[in-house]
Design a protein around this nucleic acid. Structure first.
Lengths: 141, 141
DNA sequence: TAAAATTAAATTGCATACAATTTAATTTCT
DNA sequence: AGAAATTAAATTGTATGCAATTTAATTTTA
């Protein structure tokens, strides 16, 4: 078998699928004026209320080089608040504004809209999530 | 179930895994001075010898906005040749230079090196590729 | 305790991605 | 044939990603 053929690659379909899925999110997320990475940040904040940049990075596997400008954008949209920690000035605490909190209501229909856009069954999605998570946990070090 | 929680998302693990896998490729591809998307382009050219920008885009699901600068970079490294089609001036034909062709020898060890870097069994990788391809084909429209 | 090491963000630079538009060439249609 | 529509790349602008470095603050250590 020629391992340098695209069809024999495992990484390419994941790389491609990631972009295909983001494209499916696009029109849905346009409604709430979020990009996919911004949506992920909002999601972890809806769940945890307040997180440092580092903590957000650990959850999303993104570094400050990616997050700092992204968080500034969310802050300019008044969805989040960035403030230096009083007890440790190195840390920037990120939290939701009222607008950001309210947005969760509007966003509640997104998962279902996305699922419809994909045209996969619930079982297919669950099975995919489980198997990808297994691999992700083994490989992310 | 709260569908706005990260752990219940199917898309996030794929997005994250894609980046984790690219990171695993990084040190290996550094040896041949290619980025991961550049490696994909080289791979389709090793297989097909000559392709138009559009054809490369169809195989990799990338558009000219992404490919044009990437191909210019590969051309500046003397790995590929870009030339307008004689019969249809709209089309740019991309082919391998001798250097680009030679590179396949050096690249032949990449799949195995990557597999080792991942630490997954052949079965895990094959099964992953199969299930992701199924989903990809259903969703890429 | 003062220097050394570490840590958290931010910054800089490079390389994608992709939407939208533009340009140039070719096809289709009337 | 000539205008209209279509097509293929390139261009423009915005938004990631990430390596490497910098900056400022805190912790560790000699």
């Amino acid at each position: 078998m020629d391992y340098l053929k695209l069809e024999n690659q495992a990484c390419f379909p994941i790389y491609a699928l990631s972009r295909v899925l983001t494209a499916h999110y696009k029109p849905i997320l346009d409604e709430v004026e979020l990009t996919y990475p911004q949506y992920l940040v909002m999601m972890v904040l809806w769940e945890h209320k307040q997180l440092s940049v580092k903590e957000i990075g650990e959850k999303l596997l993104l570094d400050s080089g990616t997050l700092t400008p992204l968080l500034k954008k969310l802050a300019s949209k008044k969805m989040i608040l960035r403030e230096r920690s009083k007890t440790d000035e190195r840390i920037v605490k990120v939290s939701l504004t009222d607008i950001g909190l309210q947005l969760k209501n509007k966003a509640s229909s997104i998962p279902e809209a996305f699922k419809c856009s994909l045209g996969l069954t619930t079982e297919e999605i669950t099975s995919l999530r489980t198997s990808i998570n297994t691999i992700l946990n083994k490989t992310k070090k």
